[in-house]
């Protein structure tokens, strides 16, 4: 039982943390398992935990207003799927992906919780296969960072890097959407 340091290191946020310190983190990670269709995170919910997906495939989706043949309705639109490669999912996903699948050795999701108190979840995360995952609490993580400040630096740097990248993409998305908006209006 328990999570080992190697598993922690596979997650990009912790890739720069030494194995010794990773085992410190591993101590506070609570290992869990769940079956397909389980909702791991719910959009809008407050949360003070970060999830570490060690094995399996999850779908990230958002509530959006979409246009259907019968008019506009609120519906959950899938955005992306994340799949682990080390180890790869134990079984096939319950539905074929309709969006792109991003693959990495392991994933950390809900990383905003490491930065913000009571951060709101920005999207739904649903299990598509059997999932092997771990939960780390902000409080526990803060304690480790207090003891070993060097962890904080590298982890927060990685979190910041991904946040900045996301922000750049989001800016581009806004500009694309604005152009499309003008385009549609001009017709």
């Amino acid at each position: 039982m328990g999570v080992n340091a190697k598993q922690i290191q596979k997650i990009n946020y912790f890739s720069k943390v030494s194995e010794d310190l990773c085992s410190e983190i591993a101590k506070v990670v609570k290992q869990k398992k769940c079956s397909p269709k389980t909702t791991l995170l719910k959009e809008g919910e407050a949360g003070d935990t970060m999830l570490l997906i060690f094995q399996g495939q999850v779908e990230v989706s958002k509530n959006m207003m979409v246009k259907t043949s019968s008019g506009f309705t609120m519906s959950t639109k899938s955005i992306i799927r994340l799949e682990t490669t080390d180890p790869s999912p134990a079984n096939k996903p319950i539905t074929e992906p309709t969006v792109s699948v991003v693959k990495a050795p392991a994933f950390g999701i809900g990383e905003f919780s490491l930065v913000l108190d009571n951060a709101k979840r920005t999207s739904h995360v649903t299990a598509m296969t059997d999932i092997n995952y771990g939960i780390i609490k902000l409080e526990d993580f803060s304690n480790i960072v207090d003891k070993h400040p060097s962890i904080g630096g590298s982890v927060y740097f990685e979190v910041a890097k991904s946040a900045v990248n996301n922000l750049a993409t989001a800016t581009q998305d806004i500009s694309n959407l604005t152009q499309a908006f003008f385009f549609a209006l001009a017709k």
């Binding site: 246009k67 955005i79 992306i80 969006v99 792109s100 993409t169 989001a170 581009q172 998305d173 500009s175 694309n176 959407l177 152009q179 499309a180 385009f183 549609a184 017709k187």
Partner: peptide, 27 residues
């Protein structure tokens, strides 16, 4: 518009724009 957007931003948004404009009959 397609050329203008190129590979920028997230593919999901680009696809959605194309899909929605196509659906509305806008070239």
């Amino acid at each position: 518009l397609e050329e203008q957007m190129g590979e920028s931003g997230s593919p999901i948004i680009r696809d959605m724009i194309k899909e929605q404009l196509d659906g509305a009959g806008i070239k």
